[in-house]
């Protein structure tokens, strides 16, 4: 009766793993959006920024698709135990995916505001690019942690996020001290908003890490000080 070949809910298991793949695929879309938003920022490429904004529809579409899939699984298959936790976590995960996408759009929308030839301070831009890379690494890591159900890797996200938060504060301080030039100050203020968007992306990645731990252990706990350190 316990022979491994009998798996009475094979169809359901397949649906569930397809749903997970689809939701985690959303993180790949986020990575693409993030890369292009950062590139547009670096090169003041307004056209590329427009693409980022337009492509957010794909992420929103993915959100609706996964959400619908989760609803039908709940309605038709009554998942329990580990399956139930996975379904619940996916519901969270896809929402975080959608929010990360929105942050990329926020960054893209800020690019045209700074004008055609903004007074760029290289040291601030360098920090922004560094922060973008860190946030990107967090997204990659949270995806792998979730897919592998790797709690240790998920918990490691806190350390990564701490770096991002530190960069965020640093950029804030540098922007405040940027000087009296009005245009430069306006550009620097915009960079604060970009940094904040990147910081939010990192927070969402940590949240996905929390969901990973929930799927594995069944216990939900907020990862240490991830959410209250840094500016919110």
């Amino acid at each position: 009766m316990m022979s491994p070949m009998t798996e009475p809910r094979r169809h359901f298991q397949q649906q569930l793993s397809e749903l997970e793949a689809s939701a985690l695929g959303g993180l790949d879309l986020v990575l693409g959006q993030l890369d292009r938003a950062l590139e547009a920022l670096e090169h003041q490429d307004v056209e590329l920024a427009q693409f980022v904004i337009a492509d957010d529809d794909r992420l929103d579409g993915r959100y609706l698709e996964v959400h619908q899939g989760i609803l039908s699984l709940l309605a038709l298959q009554s998942p329990v135990a580990g399956d139930l936790r996975l379904v619940a976590a996916l519901l969270h995960l896809i929402k975080h995916v959608e929010r990360m996408g929105d942050q990329c759009v926020n960054i893209a929308k800020l690019i045209p505001l700074t004008g055609h030839e903004p007074p760029v301070r290289e040291e601030i831009l360098k920090k922004i690019v560094q922060m973008g890379r860190s946030a990107r690494a967090e997204v990659v890591q949270c995806k792998r942690a979730f897919a592998d159900r790797d709690v240790a890797m998920a918990e490691d996200l806190i350390a990564r996020d701490r770096d991002v938060n530190l960069l965020n504060r640093e950029i804030f301080r540098m922007a405040v001290e940027v000087g009296d030039d009005l245009d430069t100050r306006e550009w620097a203020m915009t960079m604060i908003l970009v940094a904040r968007a990147l910081e939010r992306v990192g927070d969402n990645a940590v949240d996905i890490g929390e969901q990973t731990a929930f799927v594995v252990t069944g216990l939900f706990r907020e990862f240490s000080d991830a959410s209250n350190s840094g500016q919110r």
Partner: peptide, 20 residues
């Protein structure tokens, strides 16, 4: 607990329908 987070693997397999 049994239906959201059972402690035993066999219980988990049974309630999620992984074996009959």
């Amino acid at each position: 607990t049994i239906f959201s987070n059972p402690a035993n693997k066999a219980t988990e397999d049974y309630v999620t329908g992984r074996f009959g």
